[in-house]
Amino acid sequence: MTSDTAPPIDTALIDIVKVTKTYPPDIMALDEVSLAVGHGEMIFLTGVSGAGKTTLLKLLCFLESPTMGLIEMDKKDISKLSGHALQKMRQHIGVAYQDFRLLSKQTVYQNIALAMEVRYENPKKIKQRVLELLANLGLADKIHTPTSKLSRGEQQRVSIARACANKPPLILADEPTGNLDPAATSLVMDLFNRLHEEGTTIIIATHDQAIWQKSSHRIVNLENGKLQEIIKVNFDL
């Protein structure tokens, strides 16, 4: 039995068409990559360091633009998004960055709440959601700790909690378990799986085989900026 396969193009949430990204002077990070990600799909983006995983995620969360090619999100060319439309689109994408991007002087609570505050969510709802996420990720006792006082593993979980706070339709996670022990990894993956079951599209860039080997989801491998293969994994592995 096999896992999800590539979605039909008309149901794709993300459609990446022949996307190339080069950095000066002539470093090719992505080479004509094409990929469709369906609504509610969870996929693993694998590959060794420098394969282009982070670059692809950066393109998807508008941190960078492709040198060539087209990226559509909900059938909208994201290169044409600007101003308010871009800000609104960003609010619908939760990103767990590899370098966390946390506010070091602010507490765990404030960092996570920020993602909901920019959407002017109800303070009660924010509090409830933050407490729920912290409980899910084993950080309940760190709620008032400034993030600068946390270990890297804890910071990583705060970054993941912030990405999930709004229950966005799309979550991008860059090496989300890179600093985590197996127990914390399991908590993070449980959270992702729950969100996936609720219909969230999740793209996880990782080189940690442990988290995708047992998964039934689609796995996309990048090698030297090229999309190498789409591996289908058995459910019962």
Partner: peptide, 11 residues
């Protein structure tokens, strides 16, 4: 960080 989180101009 606010920009990455989609904070609007108004915010």
């Amino acid at each position: 960080i606010l920009r990455f989180l989609g904070a609007t101009d108004r915010y």
